[in-house]
């Protein structure tokens, strides 16, 4: 009997500590030290209007924009309310057809050679904000042509937006597609 009382009371006390006090402390620290990150790393324009989060990718298909990774979120790609991957198995015929279609779409824009894997295969979150520098560079001619500017200007923009490995050795070099496209729109 005594143990039943302890079980219930300890559960209530630990709920108050771990479910109330702990998140309150973390929120306090987060807002004090890293308010922008805590709120979602939003990119704002000069008037303070939120243009999107630098961490959450957006869908692009217009030739004048760099295209992001394929996204398998439900309803439409980069649906932030339905994060997730395709969960397609490696031998699934539907999946292989989808990849084939993506390759064809890129070939139609004049891309030759091997297609970088990140441009042909969908991300895990469906919201991956990045592509590899290779994937960005092979899109340069299309973007430059659609915008009527020289390749060099677009290459400069890409090179400017390459993020290196964190602390010099972690992860892979990458390009944030939303930030790059917003920058191009400002040129």
């Amino acid at each position: 009997m005594k143990d039943i009382k302890s079980a219930i009371l300890l559960f209530i006390i630990l709920t108050i500590i771990c479910g109330g006090i702990y998140p309150a402390i973390v929120t306090g620290v987060a807002y004090a030290l890293f308010p922008n990150q805590a709120k979602g790393s939003f990119i704002t324009d000069k008037a303070g209007k939120e243009l999107g989060s630098s961490l959450i990718g957006q869908p692009f298909s217009d030739p004048k924009y760099f295209w992001p990774r394929p996204s398998a979120t439900s309803d439409f790609g980069f649906n932030a309310m339905a994060s997730g991957g395709s969960n397609a198995g490696p031998t699934n015929p539907d999946y292989l057809k989808t990849v084939g279609d993506r390759v064809k779409a890129l070939r139609d824009t004049g891309v030759t050679g091997k297609i970088p894997a990140d441009l042909a295969q969908a991300s895990a979150s469906g919201l991956d904000p990045h592509i590899t520098p290779d994937s960005a560079l092979l899109q340069v001619p299309r973007v430059a042509k659609a915008r009527g500017v020289s390749n060099e200007i677009v290459i400069k923009a890409v090179e400017h937006s390459i993020e290196g490995r964190q602390l010099g050795f972690m992860g892979t070099p990458r390009v944030n597609v939303l930030e790059l496209n917003l920058m191009l729109d400002k040129l």
Binding site: R69, G85, S86, N87, A88, P90, T91, Y95, L96, V99, G100, V103, R107, K114, I115, P116, A117, D118, A120, Q121, A122, S123, A124, S125, D128, H130, I131, T132, M170, G171, T172, R174
Partner: peptide, 27 residues
């Protein structure tokens, strides 16, 4: 070394399906 069925379609031979760019293969 990736998925040979995807490589046949003209894609670079590493498996990026269901992976995020920022973490890299090892991560």
């Amino acid at each position: 070394s990736g998925n040979p069925l995807v490589a046949k379609l003209g894609v670079q031979s590493i498996n990026m399906e269901g992976k995020e760019v920022r973490f890299g293969m090892a991560g």
